[in-house]
Simulated scan of single mutants.
Amino acid sequence: MKNTNKWALGAMFTLVLAGGYWGLSQFATPQAEEQTGLLPYKNASVIATGQKIYQANCAACHGNDLQGEANWKQPKPSGRMPAPPHNETGHTWHHSDELLFNLTKYGIARLSNNPNYQTDMPIYEDILSDDEIIAVLAYIKSNWPTEVQQRHDQINAGS
C-alpha cells in the first residue's frame, strides 16, 4: 500500500472516531467517565431530558414513578404481558444498557427473531432518536438505589 493511501486511510479512521466522540460528547461529564456502559445516569441535564421524554412516552404504561402495571408478572386477558416496573423492583436492571437500548428501539419481536410475538410496547425506532432513548434509560437508571446501579454497572462490564 502506498504511503498516500495509508495516510488517507488513517485520516478517515481518525475522522470516524472523532465523529463518534462528538456524537457522545454531549453526554460526557467527569462523572460519566467513571460509569460503565452506555447510559450517562449521573448527568443531570441528560436525566432531566430523559424524565420529560419518559413522562410523554412511557409513564402511561410504566407509571409516573416507574412502578409498572399491577400484576406485571401475569399475562393480561389478551395474553400480553403488563408493563413491568422500571424501578429496582423490576427486571430492567438485570439487562445490559445495550440490550435495553435495542429492546426499546427495535422491540422484543425483532430481537427474539419472533415476528409473531405480541406486546403492547411500542417500537421507538421511528418515534425517538437514539439520544432520546439513551436519555430515557439514563433517567430510569438514575432512580435506582446506588447498589442496584453498581450491580447494573457490573452487568455492563460483563462481570
Rank of each mutant, 00 (worst) to 15 (best):
G20A: 15
E69D: 11
A48F: 05
N87T: 06
Q26W: 15
I155T: 05
K105S: 05
R151L: 09
G20N: 12
A18F: 15
I134D: 04
C58Q: 09
E88M: 09
A83Y: 05
Q51N: 09
G158I: 08
G107L: 00
A11I: 15
E69F: 15
I155Y: 04
T104S: 12
Q150D: 03
S159T: 08
S45Q: 11
R110T: 08
K42C: 10
E132S: 06
Y124C: 01
W93V: 04
L99K: 06
N102R: 13
W72H: 06
T92D: 02
W144F: 07
I133D: 00
V16L: 15
C58L: 10
Q55Y: 08
H62M: 09
K2P: 11
I155D: 02
W72L: 02
I108Q: 01
Q35H: 15
P84F: 03
N5C: 08
S159Y: 06
L137T: 00
A8G: 05
L17D: 02
N57A: 09
D130K: 12
P75Q: 08
A83I: 06
N5H: 11
T89H: 07
Y117T: 00
G68R: 11
N3P: 03
A44Q: 10
I53N: 06
L24D: 09
N102E: 11
N57I: 10
W7R: 12
S25F: 15
Q55L: 12
N5L: 13
L66Y: 14
A138T: 05
G10M: 10
T146E: 08
A8P: 04
N43W: 10
A109D: 01
G37D: 04
K52T: 14
M12L: 15
N143W: 01
N64H: 13
I155S: 03
A60K: 10
I123Q: 07
E69A: 14
S142L: 02
K6W: 11
T4N: 07
Y139K: 02
L99N: 04
A8E: 06
Q150H: 04
S45I: 12
P40W: 11
G10V: 12
A138R: 02
L111G: 07
E125G: 05
I140A: 00
P40Q: 09
K105C: 03
I133S: 01
P77T: 14
P84E: 01
Q74C: 07
S78Y: 03
H95M: 07
N3I: 14
W7N: 08
S96W: 06
P122D: 07
L15W: 14
I134T: 01
A56D: 09
